[in-house]
Design a protein around this nucleic acid. Structure first.
Lengths: 107, 107
DNA sequence: GAAAGTGCTATCCAAAAGGAAAGTAATATC
DNA sequence: GATATTACTTTCCTTTTGGATAGCACTTTC
């Protein structure tokens, strides 16, 4: 049984969480960054299929929500590193559960 | 540390899971149904803000993915009951984690 | 001196999502 | 006989999403 099934307050919490994480890329980006700090192109390669434009937008959004941080190095070619924050890491269990469920669901 | 951070296979599992659950309504519908079997209008009231059209489409999609089941009673006014399946219930932990994280995230 | 590499941004366009509002069918209620 | 109820579907229209492509800035490599 789900805890608090249908409870309006719990519903709001879930709604909040979903907003910070919605779309098919954000959680995957966080998952990629959970391995280690990465650069733009590395993430792009990990995700396989995302366009530069979309990745750029998603990263901005994640940064605004403090789920990742961004560090710019003034070199050429440009170098920008993205790191998952503690707050981002706190989504660990959501990702884990999603992973397990994804394995199950395929069958 | 997230389990298997960045691992491509895990990434695919998560991608699969996300597809079955994407959009801002599906998880909330499942959460509502986790309380008990409900009729169309009951779910609609629980979700607060969803239109009939969207709810109808989401329910169809959830049924196709075997996350809920649908029972029609040939009465008037029409009565249709939706029940979460075991497979749907297996998302319990995802919802729970999302709930806890949602509470945390608001601050 | 052409090409490759990096992290974007901008433009254009197609597809999808989603809201608002009305319609339907049969019964029961006032 | 008008009205309400239920679970949709349909139409119309706006917003959002996202793909494809090109460009830029500067250095290094061939």
């Amino acid at each position: 049984m789900l805890s608090n099934g249908g409870c309006p307050k719990t519903m709001l919490s879930i709604k909040d969480a979903l907003e910070a994480v919605e779309g098919r890329w954000k959680l995957l980006i966080l998952f990629s960054l959970s391995e280690r700090t990465k650069r733009f192109k590395e993430i792009s390669r990990d995700l396989n299929g995302i366009t530069d434009k979309t990745l750029s937008k998603e990263l901005k959004n994640l940064e605004e929500n403090k789920l990742i941080s961004r560090e710019v190095f003034s070199t050429f070619p440009p170098k920008v590193e993205y790191t998952i924050t503690e707050h981002g890491m706190s989504l660990e269990k959501v990702l884990d559960e999603l992973h397990f469920w994804g394995l199950l669901h395929r069958q």
